[in-house]
Design a binder for these strands. Structure first.
Length: 274
DNA sequence: AGTGCGGCCTGTCCGC
DNA sequence: TGCGGACAGGCCGCAC
């Protein structure tokens, strides 16, 4: 399940391979994703050069002279670079092929991902313009988070995972960051102090940065663009470790359900605030 | 306005 | 061995 560090890793992996490459063919085997792939996409990008790739939250943005291709990998999406003509596997829905003989292949078993087009400034696109702060930007700091938490009665974990508040944090990194900051996932957002918000912001930046450095977390479907695995999963402190001893205090980690998401925390290190 | 939940999907794992 | 059911999960859009 790619979250921000996985998307960043994919971006860094494919950028040097396809930057300034010219599209000469687009194959859409299945256009039914979360929303259908625009019918005129092929026409838009054929013979166009990829100028750059950027990321906003979990969205990848491919920059062309004539506009921007927006891509979301959903939960199970992946991108690989293959030789043009390599036989497609199950769920290889889209190939974007280049004049150098390679192509960018989009695979997504669960089809929660999407590929969309924006003629102009993608930050104005309806899927992007409501996104909250980039967690690794300076805009995302203790003041920002406190301004949002102090008015909300939601559990803090749901707030971290709300892309309108912070872009790109999913279940894995929300669990990890809350553990690092010693904050119980169920804590009512407005009960957090300013200094707890600052601590949480630091924890989020730390865990995301470390995960990017490790090439992301590989579990289930996620792999890097070159097919190798990230290795951040070896460093996870709570996610996927319910029932095992806390790495700090040895208490048994608890698993609960919050907003229909599995939540793991240490009942001793992370205190609830109501 | 803020919050919560249903629906979209398929692969994997578990119990019978 | 085979089968059904539960579960996993991001994000939009709707309902309260």
């Amino acid at each position: 399940m790619p979250e921000l560090p996985e998307i960043e890793t994919i971006k860094n992996g494919i950028l040097p391979l396809i930057k300034n490459n010219t599209v000469n063919k687009v194959i859409v085997r299945n256009q039914k994703l979360r929303s259908p792939i625009p019918r005129d996409l092929v026409k838009k990008i054929k013979w166009q050069k990829i100028k750059n790739i950027s990321r906003r939250g979990k969205y990848l943005i491919f920059h062309f002279k004539c506009g921007f291709l927006l891509m979301h990998l959903g939960m199970s999406g992946s991108l690989v670079i293959v030789k043009d003509g390599a036989s497609p596997k199950k769920h290889d829905h889209v190939d974007i092929c280049f004049t150098d003989g390679y192509c960018l292949r989009f695979n997504d078993p669960r089809r929660f991902g999407c590929i969309l087009w924006s003629d102009n400034n993608p930050s104005q696109h309806k899927l992007l313009h409501n996104l909250g702060a980039e967690p690794l930007s300076e805009e995302f700091n203790g003041d920002y988070l406190f301004a949002r938490t102090c008015k909300s009665v939601r559990p803090i974990k749901l707030m971290l995972m709300d892309s309108k508040v912070i872009a790109g944090i999913g279940n894995i990194y929300a669990n990890e960051a809350l553990f690092k900051a010693s904050i119980h996932p169920q804590s009512v957002a407005k009960c957090l102090t300013k200094s707890q918000c600052e601590k949480l912001v630091r924890a989020i930046k730390q865990v995301l940065t470390a995960a990017i450095r490790a090439g992301g977390t590989s579990c289930r479907d996620y792999k890097r663009a070159d097919g190798t695995q990230g290795y951040f999963q070896q460093k996870l402190l709570v996610y996927g470790r319910g029932g095992k001893p806390c790495r700090k205090c040895k208490a048994i980690l608890k698993t609960s359900c919050l907003g229909q998401r599995s939540t793991v925390f240490c009942p001793r290190c992370q205190k609830t605030k109501k």
